[in-house]
Amino acid sequence: MTTRAADLTAQTLERRGSSAMRPIRDALAVTGRNLIGYRRVPQLLVFSTIQPVIFVVLFRYVFGGAVNIPNYQNYLMPGVFVQTVVFGAMTTAVGLATDLKSGLLERFRSLPMARSAVLAGRTGADLARNVFVAALMAAVGFLVGFRVQTNPIAFLFGMLLVLLFGYVLSWIFANVGLAVGDPETAQAAAFPVVAPLIFASSAFVQVSSMPGWLQPFAKYQPVSVTASAVRALMIGGPTASFVIQSLAWCAGILLVFVPLGVRRYRRTV
């Protein structure tokens, strides 16, 4: 290989790399790689499925009796769908931290790949996983007596909102993962953020049952408004206001955390 021949090779790569499709191609390649990981290490999937199933059983049959909400399973399941993707978003942090620690991201940064691909591929794979988990949780819901009170289209929109919300949260946790750079720390750091959002929310109980000082937070925080929006779409009630609030949260979070994440990816490693 002479210098000239070598540069011809590089120029061939450059020609292909200059395509406007590169960000999409690279993101798909990384997504595919991450999905293989879910297939080969089923523990990752088990973590994001067993836990919500346990929640359904606990809340439906253990705490449910003490909760003063009629047809509690119908109130509960939309909340469970939302909390499933919230907990699931933590795996975005764990996945990125694992790649950072293993040195894989370092290699990626030396490659002529789109700078957005690692984050897009991680959040994309976690979205695909959420589709699977959400379908599974819907099935579990029907088994414990959950019935859609509106119509299939509204139910579908509800599920789409759940998936969108999960995707948006992935971007927050992508930042966490890159910041801590260690899978165990990522998990430990994510939990204290996630737990209050899920439990001080309308996901499992009504906000009106909480102490007064907690209500303003519990009423307007993203998990609550999303759970209420999904619930309205699935079992009825006023939808527009909650859906708009939820979408506003999604837009706001993406606006902040996507640029922050990409910037962090460029600087980290």
Binding site: T12, L13, E14, R16, G17, R22, R25, D26, A29, V30, R33, R107, F108, L111, P112, M113, A117
Partner: peptide, 9 residues
């Protein structure tokens, strides 16, 4: 994977 990300045909 590395081949694809290195933009090999």
């Amino acid at each position: 994977l590395i081949g694809r990300l290195a933009q090999v045909e």
